[in-house]
Every structure is written in structure tokens, then in C-alpha cells.
């Protein structure tokens, strides 16, 4: 018993070690609160910078579309409309495509190897920077779709959304490039949700003689629905905040038009375009627009998180 007192000299923890332990813990605590500080900082900074514009225009800012630095008149309706239209329409196209693809890679139509390759390929695409997609949209997509747009206008011009003569970059192209960006997100989240549906549910349906698609529609999709919904909402948040690809292809015009074939604007593309050169009250109005964008994406995001939580409680 005596010997070990000499061999183990740290049996008693010295002050230094105890202090290191405490410092380590508190440092970690401080570092984790950085997230909250930054988040709060972003909200406060954007809010206070937009204050001047907010007090001048109030909520009228949201519904008027004049954006005129010369006359010092600002309203963000065109950009808000563009943000909402491009994100919702692109989502509308993406959902069936993405969910369909997800079903394709979770069912056993083709051997597992192929499905896995397709799955990881789609996920890899989420890693391509949006500025590169923008470049591709300018030089490949736009010329490719030009004829098609003319056709759309000629035959469906009586519908307001196709009512203008297509002239190069426009909102519809922005929607299409958004589809390319959102597809990986929706597909991989839908795939994960479908994979999480317990096997026994599927077996139960097969067991009572349901066909494959009967099973998919009446058992599997409903069980995966809230997960897919959460993924869709996350994608919506991304679509609304997406900047580069949209800025490069949407045409950047503040002239309001219902038509998707005319150049448009989104809040983020407006910020990207004007922030560097703005001064005076234009800056504050841009911050106001940024605040609107942030609020939109926060609401969508928090709702998505709420869904995810509700979803994960179920299983």
C-alpha cells in the first residue's frame, strides 16, 4: 500500500489540472454560444440598417414596385413577387420529379448497384457551386430553350405568364435552373424518408395482396410524407435565398411584369446587383429587402424544423 503513494504522483488532482478542466468547459460553452450571437447579430444588424427605409415606407414598400435611385423612391414588390414566383414554381416542378426519382431508387426496379450510383450522383450534384450553374445557364440553357420560349409565346401568349415576347434572359430560365439546384435536395431527402419507412409496413401491405403501387401510394408515401414535406420546405428556403445562378439568368429588371418570359428580379439578385454600388437611402432600402428575404426564409426554415421534430417523434 505504501509503494503506490510514491509511484502515482497525480493521485491528488492539482489545482492546475482542475482549472484546465473548468477553462476547457467554459471555452466550449462560450464557443457554442457564438452561434446564437451571430444569428442574433445578423437579425439585429439587418433590422436596424433597414430602419430608415422602414420608417419612410412602412409596409407600402412590400406592394409598390418603383425602384428609382434618382427619384429616391423605393418599393420591392417586383423582387418579392419574383422571389415567390420563382421559388414556388420551381418547387412545383421539382417535387414530382424528385419524389419520382426517389421512388425509383428506393424500389427494386433496377439492381442495387445502379440505384446507389444514381443516388450518389444526384447527391454529388448538390455540391456544384451555383455560380457554375449560372454560367451553364447563360451559355447552354438559354440558347437551347430560345425556340421553345418563342413557341410558348406564340401558342400560349394569351395566358398572362407567357404574354411577353421572349428576349434572352428571363424568369422562366431562373425557374428551370432552380429546378436543377433543388432536385438533388428534394431527391435525397425524399429517398431518406422513404428508406426510413419501416419494412414491416410494406410487408403488411404486400401481405394482404396490395400491388406495388397501391402499397406505395397508400402506405409508403403517407408514412414518409412529413419527412418529404420537411425536405420540400428546406428546398423552398434554399430556392428563396438562392442568389448566383438566378442573378445570372433572370435578366435583372425591376419593371414589373406578370409574364415569366420577361426579365425579372428576386430579392437576392437585387442585393447581388446593387449592394456594391448603392449609397444613401438606397442602402437602407436594400437592407429592408434583405430583412424581408431573411424573414421569409426563417419562417420556412423554422416550420421545416418543426416538421422534422414532429416526424422524428413518430418512429
Amino acid at each position: 500500500m505504501e509503494e503506490k503513494l510514491t509511484l502515482f504522483k497525480n493521485r491528488k488532482r492539482f489545482g492546475i489540472e482542475k482549472n484546465i478542466d473548468i477553462i476547457f468547459k467554459n471555452t466550449a460553452l462560450v464557443l457554442s454560444s457564438f452561434v446564437a450571437i451571430i444569428l442574433l447579430g445578423i437579425i439585429l444588424v439587418v433590422f436596424f440598417q433597414s430602419f430608415e427605409s422602414f420608417s419612410r415606407y412602412g409596409l407600402k414598400f412590400l406592394v409598390t414596385s418603383e425602384w428609382n435611385p434618382v427619384k429616391d423612391e423605393y418599393g420591392a414588390f417586383t423582387a418579392i413577387y419574383g422571389t415567390l414566383v420563382t421559388s414556388f414554381l420551381s418547387l412545383l416542378i421539382t417535387i414530382p420529379l424528385g419524389v419520382g426519382t426517389a421512388i425509383f431508387i428506393t424500389e427494386d426496379f433496377v439492381p442495387k448497384v445502379f440505384r446507389e450510383i444514381i443516388g450518389s450522383f444526384v447527391e454529388l450534384l448538390a455540391a456544384i457551386p451555383s455560380v457554375v450553374l449560372g454560367l451553364w445557364a447563360i451559355f447552354v440553357m438559354e440558347p437551347f430553350f430560345r425556340v421553345f420560349f418563342v413557341f410558348l409565346h406564340n401558342f400560349f401568349g394569351w395566358i398572362p405568364i407567357f404574354s411577353t415576347e421572349p428576349t434572352g434572359r428571363n424568369s422562366l430560365l431562373a425557374i428551370l435552373i432552380l429546378v436543377v439546384m433543388l432536385l438533388p435536395i428534394v431527391t435525397s431527402i425524399a429517398r431518406d424518408s422513404l428508406n426510413q419507412v419501416p419494412k414491416k409496413l410494406r410487408n403488411a401491405a404486400y401481405g394482404i395482396g396490395a400491388s406495388r403501387w397501391k402499397t406505395i401510394f397508400s402506405v409508403i408515401l403517407p408514412a414518409a410524407l412529413s419527412g418529404i414535406m420537411a425536405g420540400v420546405l428546406l428546398a423552398l428556403g434554399r430556392a428563396m435565398g438562392e442568389t448566383m445562378a438566378v442573378t445570372m439568368i433572370i435578366g435583372n429588371s425591376n419593371a414589373f411584369s406578370w409574364s415569366l418570359l420577361s426579365p425579372g428580379y428576386t430579392i437576392s439578385s437585387m442585393l447581388a446587383n446593387q449592394f456594391g454600388e448603392a449609397d444613401g437611402s438606397q442602402v437602407s432600402s436594400l437592407f429592408y429587402a434583405a430583412f424581408v428575404l431573411m424573414t421569409l426564409s426563417l419562417v420556412v426554415n423554422i416550420f421545416a424544423q418543426w416538421l422534422v421534430k414532429k416526424f422524428s417523434l413518430k418512429y
Binding site: 510514491t6 509511484l7 502515482f8 504522483k9 497525480n10
Partner: peptide, 9 residues
């Protein structure tokens, strides 16, 4: 564990 306990042998 021995090292943590400051083993000197």
C-alpha cells in the same frame, strides 16, 4: 490510466 494518475515507475 496509469499515465493520467502520474505513474512514475
Amino acid at each position: 490510466g496509469a499515465r493520467i494518475n502520474g505513474f512514475t515507475g
